[in-house]
């Protein structure tokens, strides 16, 4: 069957047992911490801790490898762009310049720049495992309920949850369509030249959109016929009450967040500067 990425992966683990709401809050807290701080020590800690959480969740790296590779490629491009557009950012931040390799004027590679970009990468690394976990360990039916509980309108929450749920369906459709187009002689393999392949890919997108629109019409009719969107509020069948584990987790994440912020900002600067003597 088609690869199912970003779909719920069922396991028995402490992470799975947490309610969707606490996972969502933790995810938000975690990414805010990682976003606000540039303190290498904090980032390193967050990174290691997120690896630990990942291991606890019993999710295998191979199960999320596709998305992971996608993010890593994106991260690489991002790093390249930072260097291209602002090669002296590190020097500006840390106030010193140790040239490592001389290239030309402002493109000289400095230790400060490398250090800065390492920090940026570390930020990603600290957030990626947690973000992936949030998506693959939150049961889709709890997903909407959690968003709604923290104040997002239930209509939007449901839309997001449905979109996530249809990812596997769309992937399956994509594959079916690609095969049926190939059966008419449209070649998508590497044998064909790139511009033609891109053009051929369009012949998949069109039917994919059509069949997705079909699905949307059916489901929105079904929802409306059963009273969705009637009131300003709704209740949730699958919402779960908080348990001790949830409280403990929230407190731990709260402490991590506060500590991270205190350590980061106690000297009035978001950056940890190893170049100061």
């Amino acid at each position: 069957m088609a690869v199912e990425m970003l779909a719920y992966i069922d396991r028995k683990s402490p992470i799975h047992q947490l309610t969707g709401v606490s996972k969502l809050i933790c995810f938000i807290v975690w990414s805010s911490a990682a976003m606000l701080t540039y303190d290498t020590r904090i980032l390193a800690f967050l990174f290691i801790f997120s690896i630990v959480i990942f291991i606890v969740s019993k999710i295998k790296v191979s199960e999320v490898s596709f998305v992971l590779i996608f993010i890593l490629v994106f991260l690489f491009i991002n790093n390249l762009a930072i260097y291209l557009f602002s090669p002296q950012e590190g020097v500006k931040i840390y106030g010193s310049s140790h040239v490592l390799i001389e290239i030309a004027g402002r493109y000289d590679v400095t230790i400060e720049q490398i250090f800065y970009q390492c920090n940026v990468t570390l930020k990603y690394f600290a957030v990626i495992p947690v973000a992936l976990l949030f998506i693959v360990t939150t049961h889709p039916s709890e997903f909407a309920a959690s968003l709604n509980k923290i104040g997002v309108s239930y209509r939007i929450s449901y839309a997001v949850a449905l979109a996530l749920r249809y990812i596997p369906d769309v992937q399956r459709d994509f594959r079916t369509i690609a095969l049926s187009q190939q059966a008419r002689g449209i070649d998508m393999s590497k044998k064909e030249k790139l511009p033609i392949r891109i053009k051929n890919a369009a012949s998949i997108i069109f039917p994919l959109i059509l069949s997705s629109l079909d699905k949307i019409e059916t489901i929105s009719n079904a929802m409306e016929l059963r009273g969705f969107g009637k009131g300003n509020k709704r209740t949730w069948y699958s919402a779960r009450p908080f348990q001790t584990g949830d409280y403990v987790t929230l407190v731990v994440f709260g402490i991590i967040f506060v500590t991270a912020m205190v350590v980061t900002f106690h000297d009035g600067n978001r950056f940890y500067n190893p170049f100061e003597s």
Binding site: H139, P140, S141, R165, K215, T218, I219, A222, M223, R226, G227, F228, G229, K230, G231, K233, R234, T235, W236, Y237, S238
Partner: peptide, 21 residues
């Protein structure tokens, strides 16, 4: 196409949820 909930219970409950039961 018409199932909204993912589990049997959840789908049966959909109308009730919208009624704030």
């Amino acid at each position: 196409g018409q199932f909204i909930g993912l589990t049997v219970g959840e789908d049966i409950a959909f109308t009730l949820e919208n009624d704030c039961t």
